[in-house]
């Protein structure tokens, strides 16, 4: 899988280069975020600009990440596609997750 990340002073930006977050890629996605969190112990910003579709397996992986990083800086999302946002909304996880419309807003919040 094409999972890229960039390390900044106060956050790690994780950019999954995948169009679909589904049962095939969910386990690797989850492990990658958790590994980053354990390695750097700062907020993980997940830039979902490439992800156009997410199913419940992907949602489960995202929730697993969210739970796993609580004690090491937390999690924030940006550039969430409408299809993915719809799943967050239907499941009410949009009330739980920190979601920003764009990367700059999200990054500024973490750097503040």
């Amino acid at each position: 899988m094409n999972f890229e990340h960039e390390l900044y002073e106060k956050c790690v930006v994780f950019r999954p280069g995948i169009a679909r977050l589904d049962s095939i890629v969910a386990p690797e996605f989850r492990q990658c975020v958790i590994d980053l969190s354990q390695e750097h112990e700062i907020t993980i910003v997940i830039d979902l600009a490439n992800v156009e579709f997410m199913d419940s397996s992907g949602l489960g992986a995202v929730i697993g990440c969210y739970k796993a990083v609580q004690n090491s800086g937390g999690l924030a999302f940006c550039n969430v596609h409408e299809n993915v946002k719809e799943v967050f909304t239907l499941t009410h996880m949009d009330r739980i997750f920190e979601i920003h419309d764009d990367f700059d807003t999200c990054f500024s919040k973490q750097a503040a």
Partner: peptide, 21 residues
């Protein structure tokens, strides 16, 4: 009947969403 999210973070379910979706 979506699983409740008004619970502690550690109890958020990672599965069981499919049928409701």
């Amino acid at each position: 009947r979506m699983p409740s999210v008004d619970i502690s973070i550690v109890d958020l379910p990672e599965s069981g969403w499919g049928i409701q979706l």
